[in-house]
């Protein structure tokens, strides 16, 4: 059941990788997030070199997201203008991120940078999810309906220049916030191998004030292009995209998403989010542990890189 990955240059049990792709696809079907922020660290745990894990996860997200974009396109829940603005700056961000990654790799710090960023990112996301799910859970037990933050009609966003009309989102706002958001998500995608929906979806709702029905479709549209660009740039600059690994992960992923979507419809949201938060925090602690514990061998051979 072993298969040799030509770019990662190691043998893996393909059923394990397929199962991993399925599990992450399932989670993204349930929660509507890409799952890259879990897939990359899990691949690193499994022994895949961090560079390959990051670049190949970006490729997997591009594949799994594509069908989602088509569905939202048919339902006309994609703001193409907003999406294009974010894609444009996202491509610049992704190029900057891949360049940054190549620099870190040459310094021998790419592995550390990826792990350390994940500890911070997962710790943060996990804590927010845990807090939110517990609050909702408690509110439901006390018989109150969970309420979101009251949103005012105007915020600081409206004071910025270069305003543009986004018909689909019924917004007339400055292009600066979407450009900055796209750029940041592009960098995250290149350095961490994530789609960035966990950041862009809340930002689109709370900062840009986009209508909720177009947020997911627009985010997916942006994720598709940015992860595709990240994959190609990593392949060209760092030679870290493993086609065979991506193939197995995508196959597992697309099946996982289908079952996840159906399972998600039957399960209670806040309980699931609570479990997901625990999982995210466990992965964060595991990665931190690897950084703190004395490694088996303090010397390591970097293959192929001068």
């Amino acid at each position: 059941m072993e298969i040799y990955l030509p770019i990662a240059q190691m043998s893996v049990q393909w059923p394990v990788v397929l199962g991993l792709g399925f599990a992450i696809g399932f989670l993204s079907g349930v929660f509507g997030v890409g799952g890259g922020f879990l897939l990359t660290p899990l691949l690193i745990f499994y022994g895949i070199p961090p560079g390959v894990a990051v670049a190949t996860t970006a490729n997997q997200i591009a594949g799994v997201t594509f069908s989602g974009v088509l569905v939202h396109w048919k339902r006309q829940t994609v703001d193409f203008k907003m999406g294009s603005v974010m894609v444009a700056s996202g491509l610049v961000g992704s190029a900057a991120g891949v360049w940054l990654f190549a620099v870190l790799r040459r310094m021998g710090q790419a592995e550390f940078a990826v792990s350390a960023s994940y500890v911070l990112l997962l710790g943060w996301v996990g804590a927010i999810m845990l807090q939110e799910s517990m609050r909702t859970w408690k509110a439901r037990q006390e018989g109150k309906s969970p309420t979101g933050k009251r949103v005012g009609q105007h915020n600081w966003i409206h004071g910025l220049p270069f305003k543009m009309r986004f018909r689909q989102s019924r917004l007339y706002i400055s292009v600066i916030p979407p450009v900055v958001l796209g750029f940041v998500v592009g960098i995250l995608s290149a350095v961490l191998g994530v789609g960035g929906a966990f950041l862009s979806v809340p930002a689109m709702i709370y900062i840009l004030r986009m209508p909720t029905n177009v947020v997911v479709g627009t985010s997916m549209f942006q994720v598709l292009f940015v992860t595709a660009s990240t994959t190609i740039l990593h392949a060209a600059d760092n030679y870290t995209v493993d086609t065979l690994l991506a193939l197995i992960l995508v196959i597992g992923g697309v099946f996982g998403v289908q079952y996840g979507v159906r399972a998600g419809a039957k399960l209670r949201g806040e309980q699931l989010r609570f479990l997901m938060a625990i999982l995210v925090l466990v992965v964060a602690v595991g990665l931190l542990w690897q950084l703190v514990m004395r490694p088996d061998d303090v010397y390591s051979l970097t293959a192929g890189t001068p």
Binding site: P6, N59, G63, V64, F66, V71, T231, A235, V241, V250
Partner: peptide
């Protein structure tokens, strides 16, 4: 051969890999 492809024509390889992933995602629909 995959390794050679990835190292001699890295850009084409990247495009090919993305297209493969996208085609699979599409086929699953």
């Amino acid at each position: 051969r995959v390794f050679e492809f990835a190292h001699t024509k890295p850009f084409t390889y990247g495009v090919f890999t993305v297209l493969m992933a996208v085609a699979l995602g599409w086929a699953s629909m």
